[in-house]
Design a protein around this nucleic acid. Structure first.
Length: 491
RNA sequence: GAGCCGGUAGCUCAGUUGGCCAGAGCAUCGGACUUUUAAUCCGGGUGUCGUGGGUUCGAAUCCCACCCGGCUCACCA
């Protein structure tokens, strides 16, 4: 959609208003304003005293969102981050009566102003400021979206999130909640002596997950680099380095499809805890999430789409086979071949692509048939070792890994293992993934050779958890600026 | 990548058996108004109907291609 507004009459009129302000010696974009209260604080200052017409003097700043002009009087709604307050203007009260015409003729909805005046209550009972003087703080050249219906167009909401935030209070509330959720996670971890660290986003090898990386280039070094797909291998190097409890909350980048559950850049919490195993990580995960979610939902029950999610602990723990049997009725046993599993799935109504191994086939059946049905938080445990190259083998079942994934609301939201710290096995697993031994992270193997303590690790998908907490159907609704195609490649 | 749905004024939206309309509300502009609050009243219409072709006497409407978005699927453990 081309920007035709910049050629519109309205835009020209606003430009002219701007010029007129400057002709009168008024800076439409001054450097500061020393407000004394927020709008909400000003409203709170009001005291109903029948003996006094006017109350406390206040000095507030904000954006004009609505105006009601009445000839020789004017009302306006001034909005800041804390709330809204009505302004009343009349030449009778203004220190400089000429400011009245200025307000009527040269200001618009959307402009920022700072005002000073006294509190009073109108006949209609609304706490208001009778304005003694005001200062233009920023002149708007474009009209804000309509006051009543707000901004609905999905594309505009994502492209111009600032308008979405201005116009849709629930969107603003959602991102406040996201912020509080992340800070709740940090507080919980800090209280347990986890330390937050930052590891490279630009890596010479994109390890720690199976995903297509973004490639970038360092000019001076003439070096291709990958944006990280996971911080895992660096965080575990820190365990080698002697830290025992570390975490990182930051972006990962995966060069893959975009969907309601996938954004190319997304936020992960990864944590590593020396001397713990995946069972202890399970308990930690329950405690961490239930404790932070409780701050938003004391009942620990959140509504998500048609379902409600019960976050009360303990959470169910099922092996993949148990989960498949529970949710599809299909009984599997470890002897079955790829073909047998596929046939069995098909007779139960699930079409599967042939996989490389029985384990992989079972996992695929799980993904197509079971995942969406895992509404209450559920740990799916003991993944096939062949699909878990960074995890330790199960202590009682060598074909299994000590690994779980956490599902809730039908979404995969977490992944964890007892971390593999045997350098020989790690090297074998790497080599199994690629024929090209130069592509394996031999520096990581070397680090393990110095000795990494046994440890449990966890990854949580923050965006998806926020989706669940805010009942958002799309990951784009919980990311302030989701990736979209540019409108024009020429820009 | 495939399928389906959508794109009309700054915003929210009407408008297809192809032709009387290119429209409404808000915003905006002109006027009236000294306590309004979705202010009210009177008067203006601001447009590449996503883009480009085509069919037709005539296209917002039908056809083709493309762009952008949404959903579903695929991909992504």
């Amino acid at each position: 959609m081309p920007d035709s507004y910049s050629e519109s009459e309205e835009y020209q009129i606003r430009q002219e208003k701007l010029e007129k302000l400057e002709q009168r010696g008024i800076d439409p974009y001054p450097h500061n304003f020393n407000k004394i209260q927020t709008v909400a604080e000003a409203v709170d200052l009001f005291v109903d005293d029948p003996d006094e017409e006017l109350g406390e003097t206040v000095k507030v700043a904000g954006r004009i969102r609505r105006r009601r002009l009445h000839g020789k009087a004017a009302f306006a709604d001034l909005v800041d981050h804390s709330g809204q307050i009505q302004l009343y203007l009349s030449a009778r009260y203004l220190d400089d009566s000429e400011q009245f015409d200025l307000f009527n003729e040269l200001l618009d909805i959307g402009d920022f102003i700072g005002v000073q005046g006294e509190l009073f209550k109108t006949n209609e009972g609304e706490i208001s400021v009778v304005v003694r003087n005001f200062k233009i703080l920023s002149k708007g050249l474009r009209p804000l979206p309509e006051k009543f219906h707000g901004l609905k167009d999905t594309e505009l909401r994502y492209r111009k999130r600032y308008l979405d935030l201005l116009d849709n209070p629930e969107v603003r509330e959602l991102f406040l909640q996201r912020s509080q959720f992340v800070s709740g996670l940090r507080n919980w971890l800090e209280n347990r002596n986890f330390i937050e660290v930052e590891t490279p986003m630009m890596q010479t090898l994109a390890g720690g997950a199976e995903a297509e990386p973004f490639i970038t280039h360092h000019n001076t070094l003439d070096l291709d680099l990958y944006l990280r797909i996971a911080p895992e291998l660096f965080l575990k190097r820190l365990l080698v380095g002697g830290f025992e409890k570390v975490y990182e909350i930051n972006r990962n980048f995966r060069n893959e499809g975009i969907s309601t559950r996938h954004n190319p850049e997304f936020t992960m919490l990864e944590l590593y805890w020396a001397y713990a195993d995946y069972k202890e990580i399970m308990v930690l995960t329950e405690q961490l999430l239930s404790s932070v979610i409780e701050q938003f939902n004391p009942e620990l029950i959140t509504e998500y789409q048609e379902n409600s999610i019960d976050w009360n602990t303990p959470w169910e723990r099922l092996t993949i086979e148990q989960a498949i049997e529970r949710h599809t009725g299909i009984e599997l046993n470890s002897e079955m071949s790829v073909e047998e599993i596929r046939k069995l799935a098909e007779t139960n109504g699930y079409q599967l692509e042939p996989a490389d191994s029985s384990e992989a086939q079972i996992f695929e059946l799980f993904e197509t048939a079971v995942e969406k049905q895992l509404i209450d938080p559920t740990f799916i445990i003991d993944f096939p070792a062949s699909l878990s190259p960074l995890a330790k083998r199960h202590r009682n079942a060598p074909e299994r890994a000590e690994r779980f994934e956490l599902f809730a609301g039908g979404l995969e939201v977490g992944n964890a293992y007892s971390e593999l710290n045997d350098p020989r096995e790690q090297k074998e697993n790497f080599l199994r993934q690629t024929e090209d031994s130069s592509k394996i992270d031999s520096d990581y193997i070397e680090a393990l050779e110095y000795g990494m303590p046994p440890a449990g690790g966890l990854g949580l998908g923050i965006d998806r958890l926020v989706m669940l907490l805010t009942n958002s159907a799309s990951i784009r609704d919980v990311i302030l600026f989701p990736l979209l195609q540019p409108l024009s490649r020429e820009d």
